[in-house]
Simulated scan of single mutants.
Amino acid sequence: MLTAVIPVKNEAPSLKGVIKNLQAVPVDLIIPVLNGCTDGSEEIIRTLPATLEDPLVFTEPLGIDVPRALGAARAWERGAETVLFVDGDMDGPISSALKQLVVAVKKQGVDLALTNCYPPEELARVSDLAGYLLSVRLNLNRALGLAGAIGTASPSHGPHAVSRRFLASIPWRELAVPPVALAMAAKKGLKIRVGATIPHSQLGSPFRDAVHARRIAETIIGDCLEALNLIRGLPRQRSLNGNVYLGYHPERRFDLLAAHIPSRRGTGNR
């Protein structure tokens, strides 16, 4: 079964477009995870016939990436063999790329199919902050021996698809820290590849202010530093050159994640 997980945080205007893209794949099941929404997103979700699963609704904000982990756990419970992750604001013309990600997992044996959001034409116009973030992502991918296969791609950015074997191998908590999940998958010898290319400007994600952009970048940088320390057998710190990169990390509600994930005896995912 092909299942889509949609983390949703006040993204009512884009939800119909996201669902339309998923219908074009098509997927068997859609699991929306509503993350402290206050804009009517739940009401829109419940009116869409393509939503085959009651949404997971959390009135408290879960923080960045935690909804992804909760949706993955629900998909596991439902027997999903392939899970496609698409954020609730990604309503751009990306249905063909989503199909490519699914094909990579279902037909090509890939366990983690990533999106390259920075093809050369996009790289030419990135900001200094984005350029630094990409350098940190590339450094992690080099340390994992994956730079040749995935470049700067990361599960932190863009749609991606995973196999059931991936879900069985990575603890739920670590799905909420995507670069750490990437590092664990690489250490376990799972197959990781770029499955599609979608320039960041085509994802459909709305422009956010500079403060948000910096906090997102600091979140992902800190996550990459955690992943690098993990593979080196060091404490999972988020500091580099005297700077501590927290971003939105302190707002991740790992407590709510632990309270809602199912038990999985015998799966290897602890």
Rank of each mutant, 00 (worst) to 15 (best):
L144E: 11
R236D: 04
P178L: 02
E53Q: 13
L140Y: 07
E81D: 15
S154G: 02
L182C: 03
G189W: 05
K191W: 01
L48G: 07
K106S: 13
A97Q: 14
N243P: 02
L112V: 10
G145W: 11
H157E: 12
T267M: 07
Y245M: 05
A80W: 04
L133F: 12
I30Q: 01
I44S: 02
V86R: 02
I6K: 09
I44A: 06
I150F: 12
I220V: 15
G17C: 02
V86F: 01
R125I: 14
V180M: 11
W76I: 02
G148N: 15
G195L: 05
A176S: 15
P159T: 00
F254R: 06
I19Q: 06
R236S: 04
I150T: 04
R214H: 06
G92Q: 11
D54P: 15
S95K: 02
S239R: 12
S41D: 05
G204D: 11
E81W: 01
S41I: 03
D39V: 10
G247S: 10
P206V: 10
I45E: 05
A259V: 08
E121T: 14
R165V: 12
V136Y: 09
L140A: 00
T47Y: 03
I19A: 03
W76Y: 15
V177C: 10
Y248L: 15
R232K: 15
G36D: 01
T3A: 13
N21L: 05
Q202P: 01
D223Q: 09
I220H: 14
L129V: 14
D255Y: 11
Q202C: 00
N116L: 06
R164M: 06
R78D: 02
L246W: 13
L101K: 11
A183Y: 03
I216T: 13
G222P: 00
K99N: 03
P179V: 08
N139G: 14
Y118V: 05
L98S: 08
R137V: 10
C37Y: 07
L140F: 07
R46D: 09
S96R: 08
L257P: 05
D87H: 14
G266W: 01
E60R: 14
K20P: 03
A186Q: 06
E42P: 01
G109C: 01
E11W: 10
W172S: 11
G158T: 10
V110H: 06
A72Y: 15
P235K: 11
E53W: 07
R265V: 12
K107V: 00
R214W: 09
D223K: 01
C37G: 01
I192D: 09
N141T: 04
S41F: 04
V180K: 14
N139C: 07
H157K: 04
G158V: 07
V5R: 10
D91I: 00
S135V: 03
L225Y: 02
V66E: 11
A130G: 00
Y118W: 15
P61Y: 00
R46M: 00
S205Q: 13
P206G: 09
G268L: 08
I6H: 10
N10W: 10
D54K: 14
L190M: 01
L190P: 07
L182V: 03
M90K: 12
M184G: 03
M1H: 09
R164W: 02
A168V: 01
V83P: 10
V211E: 15
F166Y: 15
L234C: 04
I216L: 15
A12N: 11
N116A: 06
A185N: 05
